[in-house]
Nucleic acid binder design. Sequence first.
DNA 1: ATGTACGAAATCGTATACGATCCATCATGG
DNA 2: CCATGATGGATCGTATACGATTTCGTACAT
Lengths: 229, 229
Amino acid sequence: MSTLTPAGPAAAVSKSEQAYETLKERITSGSLVPGYRLVLSTIADELGFSVVPVREALRRLEAEGLVTFERNVGATVAGVDAMLYLHTMQTLSVIEGAATALAAPLITAEDITRARYLNRELRACLENFEPARFSRINNDFHAILYGHCPNPHILDLVHRGWNRLSAMRASTFDLVPGRARQSVEEHEKLLALIESGADLHEIEMAARAHRTATLNAYMAQQNQPPSAI
Amino acid sequence: MSTLTPAGPAAAVSKSEQAYETLKERITSGSLVPGYRLVLSTIADELGFSVVPVREALRRLEAEGLVTFERNVGATVAGVDAMLYLHTMQTLSVIEGAATALAAPLITAEDITRARYLNRELRACLENFEPARFSRINNDFHAILYGHCPNPHILDLVHRGWNRLSAMRASTFDLVPGRARQSVEEHEKLLALIESGADLHEIEMAARAHRTATLNAYMAQQNQPPSAI
DNA sequence: ATGTACGAAATCGTATACGATCCATCATGG
DNA sequence: CCATGATGGATCGTATACGATTTCGTACAT
């Protein structure tokens, strides 16, 4: 159909890319709940594409762990259970710790200032009980800390981890009430560590512990053993 | 063509899967050199498939970093430069360190025995100067150490890292002559650490340092600064 | 009533077709 | 001689078509 529309000034991005972005947004935003069945023809019709680019988009999402694929059956939005959450958080703790350490020497004074500002906003969210906004600002805060990581592979893995997490409702701090407040305190310590030019290994372990603590709070609530590392 | 062959008893694996495996094998084995142009129609003709499954396979390989894709231009086998090697090794050092630590409590006495055997084989390779065999056995050795890692995401990332490395000729120890011998020594220490039930953090850092040392030997040879972590 | 066999509908996997885009080559003008 | 624009071929991106497979409902036998 689009091929019969020569008026089109050449799509800036391919349709597979568009389908990929659209679906990723819907999954990470939670408008597509885990377990939801992603039928090729349905999605294609809705987007006005053929099934081919949609198929490719689903494959990419599968590679990132946002959907699961079963041959001759189809794709579904990846579900969440305690085990998947553990594995995702554990992986992210390792990767994000390394990314934060690698980025630390490249952090500017402006970054620190902005991070401090965001952390005050986080505190305000606690007072006003705005969990959704808390999650959003929390993302921004950490993005500042690991954003300068000079290793693109590690940075990519961090982004994938965050995407997976945001696709899980368990990622919000709703489930572990007390944790959010403690998290804000740890942010301040982490900033002080980076600001003082601490040893990279120390920064890595602090960033990792910050995430592991959230994970373990959840695991304890589920009567499960904590993460081994 | 296959659709006109109803005699086919239903392929056990899809053609995209076959194309993926075939191409991955060729790239990691080095029979497709970096920079090689991967033309859809050519590959499709050679495998006897249509371009659609081949296209999907290339996309998957792109997600793993084995090929690079450029819109409306095509795919090429991912090239290697010092920077890419640094990033890949650095990522793998972090991930494999974590995987080895997580797997350590699950290592059996048989695993240790087999790892010791392989390390003796590695020593023999040094004497007889068999670099190809050394690389192969080195893979097996480490696969034993991280193989029991209970976190499938981390395990998957380790495998991807090894795949990327084996696609680089720089991964062989050819380029850093003295390193192979030292590596064998470190293997023994790593085994002793795991066997003694050492702290997981200590094991993680030893496994990471083992890889970082190889990376830094290469970096020093290239007159480049060592890895920050 | 329950389990099994069969058939239809839904959906996926892949082949083919063709427009869209890029790149190299060559002609043309300065 | 070099810069610039036109032209053709190579290759990609996507629509459409259809066989293959799974799934689910229904009828039948036990």
